[in-house]
Design a protein around this nucleic acid. Sequence first.
DNA 1: CGTGGTCAAGCGGTA
DNA 2: TACCGCTTGACCACG
Length: 312
Amino acid sequence: MRVCLGYVALALPLPSASKTLTYTNYEKLGSNALPKLNDIILNNFHNLKEILKYNYANNVHFYRLSHHLIPLATHPSVHFDYIKNYQNYWQEIGLFFKKYNIRTDTHPDQFCVLNSPNKEVLNNSIRILEYNKNIFNAMEIEGKVILHVGGLFNDKEKAIQRFIKNFQKLDKTLQEMILLENDDKVFNIKDVLKICETLKIPMVLDYHHYKCNNEGEDIKDYLPRIIKTWNNSGLMPKMHFSSPKSIYAKRSHSDYINAGDFIVFLELLKNFTDEIYIMLECKAKDDALFRLVRELKYKTNYKFINETTFVV
DNA sequence: CGTGGTCAAGCGGTA
DNA sequence: TACCGCTTGACCACG
């Protein structure tokens, strides 16, 4: 099995590409607000380019874009054309992704709730999805958006049906962009798998969330079906992996990956797929990735193709 | 100079 | 019932 590792949003040695501006501060600035916003955006673009160069130099070909690249892009009261105003920057970033062969996706924060019974929340969620579509289009890359099912609203079956109904009403271009991930509290792998099979969309298994939220099901019984959801997507399957902070704070993410647990997972996974992209979700970001690789090189005889890709 | 509260938005869970 | 985490950082008031 060929494994390709990736990390999320920040490269520790470099400045952040997701500096933000809150609406309150934006309003306080008066006529200086848009120039300030513009400064922050240009800075984020610059820092993102540096992160992509850093990724390429370190053989990282899987990287999640922070969706805070453009602050206030989806705010109802802030009007600016975040695509046209920065067309050259989008093109340039897109070229970096293509030239460096870096697979990417985004993961909107908690306000994107596609199964909300509240119309305003739903509309806002769609606006967030459109933002993602717009930036992928501007960069001319095939990015995907990873979503959770959303809220429980006291009735899981109804909540699932509402997700399905709202998904089916989305524009086809938005539908094609969405991947669905199991969460750590409500929608477990069985729930998400059922939705993914119904809607024919790929499922992103989050192993850490599975550990937090399950009904005693054995992951190996579900891996074949999870992998199968990727069959007609034209994409290599991807999963998320992280380690719990402690046995007490089980849901929190640890700074680093527990290499032993990771090896056990890979040894199981290799029975079900020939290729996997694994996004590591750790506080220590790229550092966690490189540290894990050093440990794998020492503890296993995996054959390394480059710094972040190897064969199990 | 360092710390803690606040910021557009939603949920479920815990004390 | 009120806060916490999810993710993640700026900026302000305060000590």
